[in-house]
Design a protein around this nucleic acid. Structure first.
Length: 288
DNA sequence: TTCTTTGTTCCGGA
DNA sequence: GTCCGGAACAAAGA
């Protein structure tokens, strides 16, 4: 599941591999992803050079010369593959074999200069790609309501405290609310609350100052660590092209229902239940 | 056939 | 009026 660290890693990979290349031909193999695709919109970026790749929350922004920007969200299963034509060599963050059965989910294929092909692949089709005018980005419906980036200085104790006033929402729901902080998804929020020793169902106005500090510190720490991990696994992968299972992630609680808590000497089994329709994992001994 | 997954929106109850 | 959270929706695979 692509969360902020994965999107950041993809961003860097795109930055390194397709900046300054020019779109030559685009093949669209589906009528819709999350939204209906308007093929005409894509004509505008033909023969346009890619000048920058940015990330905001879990969104990717690929800007071209001439005032158009590609806005992409990977949803649950979206992936970008960068393939060097003729060489069949994988150059991106995720495993890809040109012969693989995933081919049927290659929904958009961008041919670029330098014999580079950029492929948008998405099994579940919960992701999307839109072409926007670069000047409208700030007011874009997906971006304008987003809260601060979790890795920015704006995401600090004061901000957290001010936001919490008179609110009784559960801490887990708040951390997942994109208006509060942009880019945290279910997996990382489960992990952050475990590391911070806080039960996911605590009311936000009952979280004390020390705990707020812990949550913020751990949020930044875990994101930075995961970005570094993603980066290193990409490197390993390019070095040993063709090997599968390059992107392994180890979680403390996520998807570990019934397994023992990983803290030394804690024999409690990880519990699972739902908060706001999202699977929630926690250790009842370690989280208060 | 049913369940799972995420981000977002809608709506009912407190 | 405001706040909270459950339900629903998208698609496809197990």
């Amino acid at each position: 599941m692509p969360e902020l660290p994965e999107v950041e890693v993809v961003k860097k990979s795109l930055e390194n591999n397709i900046t300054n290349l020019v779109f030559k031909k685009i093949m669209i193999n589906t009528s819709k992803l999350r939204y209906i695709i308007n093929k005409n919109d894509f004509r505008g970026i033909i023969n346009k050079k890619i000048i920058s790749i940015k990330r905001r929350s879990k969104y990717l922004l690929i800007s071209t010369e001439g005032g158009l920007t590609i806005l992409a969200h990977l949803g649950m299963t979206g992936k970008f593959f960068i393939v060097k034509k003729n060489k069949m060599k994988i150059k991106t963050s995720f495993y890809y074999n040109l012969e693989s059965k995933d081919d049927k989910h290659n929904h958009i294929i961008f041919n670029l200069t330098n014999n580079i092909i950029l492929i948008y692949n998405d099994v579940r089709k919960f992701g999307f790609i839109k072409i926007l005018s670069s000047s409208s980005i700030e007011n874009n419906i997906h971006l304008k309501t987003l809260g601060p980036e979790p890795l920015s200085k704006k995401f600090n104790s004061k901000y957290f405290k001010d936001y919490s006033k008179n609110k009784r929402k559960k801490i887990k729901s708040v951390l997942m609310d994109q208006k509060f902080v942009a880019g945290l998804g279910n997996i990382y929020v489960n992990e952050i609350l475990y590391i911070s020793h806080i039960k996911p169902n605590r009311s936000i106005n009952k979280i004390n100052n020390l705990e707020i500090k812990k949550i913020i510190k751990n949020t930044k720490k875990i994101l930075v660590k995961s970005i570094k991990k993603g980066g290193s696994s990409i490197k390993d992968f390019i070095d040993s092209a063709g090997k599968e299972g390059s992107f392994q992630q180890n979680f403390y609680v996520y998807a570990r229902e019934g397994k023992k808590c990983l803290k030394i000497d804690c024999k409690t089994k990880i519990k699972k239940y739902f908060i706001a329709n999202r699977s929630t994992f926690f250790c009842k001994s370690c989280q208060k």
